[in-house]
Computed example of a mutant assay.
Amino acid sequence: MDLALHPRFTAQSAHANGVSALVFNAGRVYSASKDAQIKEWDADSFQLIRVFSGHSRWIRCLALGNGRLFSASWDNSVREWDLETGLCVRVFEGVHESGVNSVLVDEANIRLYSASEDRIIAVYDLNSGEVIDRWEASGGIIALHHIQLNGDLGYIAAASDNGTIGLWDASSGELVDSSPSSSNEVTSLFLTAGRLFSAGNDKLVTEWDVSSMVKGRTFRGHSAYVSCLTGTEGESEGVPGGPRLFSGGWDGSVKVWDLVTGVCIASLRVFEGRSVNSICLGDDGLLVTGGSNGDIKFWNLRFLASRLLMTMHR
């Protein structure tokens, strides 16, 4: 169902270049961009609160953990930010030889992971900041995701620019699986409802069994490169039923998938002639989308839910 809804608010030209990452925390939305800046927004008033400056190149990823914000950049570094002061309190550099595409925080096991175009996944002690391990992948790493299975530290899934998804045992540092996807480049990973989902430049979203890394269902609907994923476990975010998966693509849309049936239940037309580069979910039915034109749009999923219910009962 293609829905032409109006966002609650649009921050036009929020960034001077494309919005590459979004995260939500405690009533705040943090956005990052090719303009090398991080911006903090009030999720209720949609007003800009402050700007975090320090990176010199494209910021590819944001992650929250340990009460801090972490950013990965093509200046080959990861920065750690104090959310109270907005100041950079630590820089992880001298580890990667190419741009850093992803950063992941494992608070429970006091670890930080960074992944780069140089094919290296670096493992840090989150307290000391020291590198305690390095893993080498078969391609440049685009995205990371933590999977807690039977291992003491769980597993790290790594999406590569050669179309593979590697699964690393975080305890031993061993590569236990490397699964080819149907895409030449895997752009995003997301874990919800006990299943791993990947997206890529083949216009598809693919479901994986996390214990065996065997492919499950394929979700078709985007007409271009799928760039970002997020999801819900249930109804708390304002969409009826659940769990749900959200995918954003270069076709300018965000699609909402029912993970029980595998059906696309809604398609939001977010940008005309521009791509959706990043998405995140907040409290009380908030969906935030970032575009290649630097715009950030704030959506009300509860209104989307009411539109869906009205349509279902016609």
Rank of each mutant, 00 (worst) to 15 (best):
I59G: 06
S77V: 07
L268C: 05
S20W: 08
L204P: 05
V89Y: 10
Q37F: 05
N162S: 10
W81T: 04
A11H: 11
A305K: 10
W257V: 02
N76F: 09
N76T: 11
T230V: 14
E185T: 09
A14T: 02
I121E: 13
A36I: 02
D251E: 04
R68A: 14
L5R: 12
G234E: 06
R68H: 15
M312A: 12
N127F: 13
A32I: 00
P243T: 05
G252V: 00
L191D: 05
I141Q: 10
L281Y: 03
I265Q: 07
A115S: 12
N101C: 14
V29P: 01
D251P: 00
L204G: 10
I110K: 14
G166P: 09
V78L: 11
N101H: 10
A170C: 06
A36N: 14
S183K: 07
E185W: 13
T187P: 03
G294P: 01
S71R: 11
K297N: 05
W41R: 08
H96E: 09
F246N: 05
D118W: 08
G86D: 13
Y155I: 03
F9G: 01
V100Y: 00
K215N: 08
R8C: 09
N76M: 12
A4H: 09
V226H: 01
I141V: 15
V226M: 03
F246H: 07
N17G: 08
G285R: 14
K39H: 06
D295E: 04
N76P: 04
N101F: 12
L268D: 01
R60Y: 13
E233L: 09
G194P: 00
T311K: 14
R57K: 11
K297V: 02
T218W: 06
A137I: 11
S128H: 02
N184W: 09
